[in-house]
Amino acid sequence: MLIIEGVSRSFCGRQALAPVTLHLGAGEYVAIVGESGIGKSTLLNLIAGLDRPSTGRILFKGLDYASLDEVALAKLRRQHFGFVFQAFHILPHLTVLQNVMLPLSLLGQRDREAQAPALAMLTKVGLAARAQDFPQALSGGELQRVAIARALVHAPTVVLADEPTGNLDPDNAQRILALLAECIRAHGAIGLLVTHSSQAAATADRVFRLTRSGLVAA
């Protein structure tokens, strides 16, 4: 379903990402580990269509990214991708519920339609009682749970998580990783987790290490 073939990225002649080849099917949950600056986030940006590879190609459901313009790639992300970030990126001026409804709103759903699935997702991550609160009132762990709910509310085909527990304490981190894995599996989505932590990577089905020469099985 998601095919990454010989994809690399260079900036001003400096290689930021060595050529990577990876094939992912529905329901697969994969972790990529590697040292800082090796290109993990660059790889996620390329998979999300936010950057163009210097070499290689990426195909999603048979569709080559090279044939898509910015608007088409944005539409692709809107419909098929969910994201979980290290810094949560929850909009401070929207309520918890509105933050989770956001991907559905972007897909054209009215508030009425979007509310029920968003509330269901919040229930799933244990935050239904905080739906009307503003993010300022939530702890770091709770914010990341909101981010997971937002990443999955529109039933995406791919969920990309970039160091989702980097800002959390070990107990919270374990709970969040478990929740993320459970949700991804429950939705049958492709999960791609990028992390420094081998403990976090262990929650995935397969683990790869990104090196200067490319992707190797860990």
């Binding site: 999300a48 936010l50 910015e70 608007v71 944005a74 539409k75 692709l76 992300r77 809107r78 419909q79 991708f81 994201f83 970030f85 810094a87 990126h89 909009l91 956001l102 991907p103 972007l106």
Partner: peptide, 16 residues
């Protein structure tokens, strides 16, 4: 910038 970046991840275009 980070907020805009997140919104672009969610599928908003620069135009949006």
């Amino acid at each position: 910038r980070r907020e805009f970046g997140m919104l672009r991840h969610l599928g908003l275009t620069r135009r949006d």
